Simulated scan of single mutants.
Amino acid sequence: MNAPHPSHAPFAHLAGKRVLVTGATGFLGRHLLPQLVAAGADVTCLTRASSRTDHLPQGVTVARADLATGDGVAQALGGQDILIHMAALLFGLNWQDYLRANTVAAQHLAAAIMSIRARRRALPRVVLVSSLAASGPADGMPGRNDEAIGAPVSAYGWSKYLVEQILGRAAGDKLVVLRPPIIYGSGDKGLLPVFRGIQKGVAALPGWKRPFPVSVVHARDAAQAILLLCRKDAHGVYHVNDGAQHTMRAFYEAAAQALDARPLFIPVPVPVLGMTALAATLWTRLLRRLRRASGDRAPNWNLDKYREARHAGWLCDASRLCQELGYAPTMSLAAGMTEAVNGYRAEGLL
């Protein structure tokens, strides 16, 4: 299943298109931008003034704007054919964190889109990278499908679902949504603690005597799906995965194999998961209150992530993406883990 990188013919629809990307300096952006450039798109990355941009691919333009305040957003979006919105807060301590970051950014983008509509200009196609968290959990095959009503169980999931509604009201049928499951690959700081734990010989499994089935996708294939959603015939909500069902243990075992590690797998009962998440959340809140924290970032494991982990599984169905748009995953779990580990090592993170 470790096929060569997909040819650029399926992405001919992007040749010459002006594409504005938010969240481009993050993990997924490093896998998406090279594919956009190779497809012939004229790419602009919307970044804050404080963001590093020296690692962006050659030929990419930078537009300085602030999604938190809206400054510069309308100017950056003007004249673009496609908006790919990936910027999002992944780890928050409470509902306010997610609402402040994710939905406020969506409101500013929606205002910019409505301004274009008011001037009777052509609206850009809006490709939103949402999350399976907006669909809700599922522990049986084939998992959550594209027609299922959103049923989030976490603040993060609800914030992503609200973003879909906000942009949908502004962009109408110009909006198309991708709801990916766990995305992994080189450059991902969210799963880095898991890889480090496995390297040290410990892997904690969510729940006692339960398989916890999950869908996953490598960032390279998630990027492929985003490019396909830029097509004019893409519509509605799509899910994406690597074409297989996994358990969380199998996911960790693949990471261990790539690391050449032999970790001890420790099943953690759901109540214990809740207590550890509560402790991590309360400790960070205390640090915030005492102003000892170096920033507002929440720990990777917190109460909101526990709200997702306490469910029996997270599966999704990518069949419509495959049938309608020709999506075909290129990275097996083993190959994807090797790419991720090699990337972490190249950056000195493992």
Rank of each mutant, 00 (worst) to 15 (best):
2 N>E: 13
4 P>K: 01
7 S>F: 03
11 F>Q: 00
11 F>E: 01
13 H>I: 04
18 R>A: 13
19 V>K: 01
21 V>P: 02
23 G>Q: 07
26 G>N: 08
30 R>C: 10
30 R>S: 14
31 H>W: 08
32 L>P: 06
32 L>D: 07
35 Q>M: 09
35 Q>T: 03
38 A>I: 02
41 A>F: 00
46 L>K: 13
48 R>A: 09
53 T>E: 05
56 L>I: 02
58 Q>C: 05
62 V>H: 03
63 A>Q: 01
65 A>E: 03
67 L>D: 08
71 D>F: 06
72 G>H: 00
74 A>M: 01
75 Q>C: 11
75 Q>S: 14
77 L>Y: 09
81 D>G: 01
81 D>C: 02
85 H>F: 06
88 A>R: 03
89 L>Y: 05
92 G>P: 09
94 N>C: 15
95 W>R: 10
96 Q>R: 14
98 Y>V: 12
108 H>G: 05
108 H>K: 02
109 L>H: 00
112 A>W: 06
112 A>E: 10
113 I>Q: 04
114 M>R: 10
115 S>I: 02
119 R>K: 13
121 R>D: 07
128 L>C: 03
129 V>I: 10
133 A>C: 14
134 A>L: 08
140 G>I: 12
141 M>V: 12
142 P>G: 14
143 G>D: 09
146 D>F: 13
148 A>T: 10
153 V>R: 05
162 L>A: 04
166 I>V: 03
167 L>Q: 05
168 G>H: 07
168 G>I: 06
168 G>S: 04
173 D>N: 12
173 D>V: 06
179 R>W: 01
180 P>G: 07
182 I>W: 00
186 S>F: 09
186 S>T: 07
186 S>P: 12
187 G>T: 05
189 K>N: 12
190 G>A: 12
196 R>S: 15
206 P>G: 15
207 G>D: 01
215 S>K: 00
220 R>L: 15
228 L>D: 02
229 L>Y: 02
234 A>E: 06
235 H>G: 08
239 H>W: 09
243 G>W: 02
246 H>S: 11
247 T>P: 00
247 T>K: 00
248 M>F: 15
249 R>G: 04
250 A>Q: 08
256 A>S: 15
258 A>N: 11
260 D>G: 10
266 I>N: 01
268 V>F: 00
273 L>A: 03
275 M>G: 04
283 W>K: 11
285 R>F: 08
290 L>T: 09
292 R>W: 15
293 A>T: 13
296 D>I: 14
302 N>S: 09
308 E>M: 13
309 A>Q: 10
311 H>G: 06
313 G>M: 05
313 G>N: 02
320 R>A: 09
322 C>N: 11
326 G>A: 05
332 S>K: 08
336 G>M: 10
337 M>Q: 12
343 G>S: 15
343 G>I: 13
344 Y>K: 11
347 E>G: 09
348 G>F: 08
350 L>W: 09
350 L>P: 10
